[in-house]
């Protein structure tokens, strides 16, 4: 474990908590893409199948459980409890256009052709594009609530910090996983224009409005 990965994990946890609290406190999931939340749940389910078979550390197991419970809880809030506030008219990204190619790619490019490894690879590839429905929804509505932009900033920062962690681990342990690194770079690049808007607008107290 290194500080970059720890801060990255905490940033990821913060993002998930921010979103959960936003939906719970305002009792509304306006402006939030349920499709992205479904994809994130799928990412955690396919990645953490080894939760009970492969113990790494208490921290690792506890975080996996928290991610699984909170992401599924968010999907539950969005599609059941506060379904009336779910903005399905703007959450129209076709996630099959993500899941199918990612599924195919995980069969073609992986470290080991075993079910667990292919599912892990699937989850890594899927996570890199899972935010697209959310970014697409914001581009359609043309704006995002400030709390949602904080959520996105924390979520985007997590994988950016993981990239720093991979550089650090490469130089200190000689460890690197090309699949995770490439997917992590793609994932972080997708946030770039949002990061620019967040830093130039939201941090100056303005509303996040995408150029129409």
């Amino acid at each position: 474990m290194n500080v970059f990965r720890l801060v990255g994990d905490l940033s990821h946890l913060l993002a998930i908590i921010i979103l959960l609290l936003k939906i719970w406190k305002t009792r509304s999931c306006a402006g939030v893409s349920g499709k992205s939340q479904i994809l994130f749940s799928l990412v955690f389910i396919t990645r953490y199948l080894d939760l009970f078979t492969n113990f790494i550390s208490v921290y690792n197991s506890v975080m996996k459980i928290i991610y699984l419970v909170t992401s599924l809880g968010t999907v539950y809030l969005m599609y059941f409890k506060f379904k009336a506030t779910y903005d399905s008219n703007h959450d129209t990204f076709r996630i099959e256009f993500l899941v199918v190619p990612v599924g195919g790619l995980s069969f073609l490019v992986n470290h080991d052709f075993t079910p667990l490894e292919i599912l892990w690879t699937f989850s890594i590839y899927l996570e890199s594009v899972a935010i697209l429905p959310q970014l697409f929804m914001i581009s359609k509505t043309g704006e995002a609530e400030t709390i949602t932009s904080h959520y996105l900033f924390a979520l985007g920062s997590y994988r950016a910090l993981y990239i720093v962690n991979w550089v650090y681990r490469y130089y200190t342990e000689g460890f690197f996983d090309l699949i995770a690194i490439v997917a992590g770079c793609v994932q972080t690049i997708l946030y770039c224009d949002f990061f620019y808007l967040y830093i130039t607008k939201v941090l100056k107290g303005k509303q996040l409005k995408l150029p129409a």
Binding site: R5, D9, H12, D50, N54, I56, S57, N60, M63, K64, Y67, H111, D112, W120, Y162, N165, E173, G174, F175, F176, D177, L178, A180
Partner: peptide
């Protein structure tokens, strides 16, 4: 590269 198979990252 180091063939590290232990998935110790989240």
């Amino acid at each position: 590269n180091v063939e590290v198979k232990v998935k110790d990252e989240l």
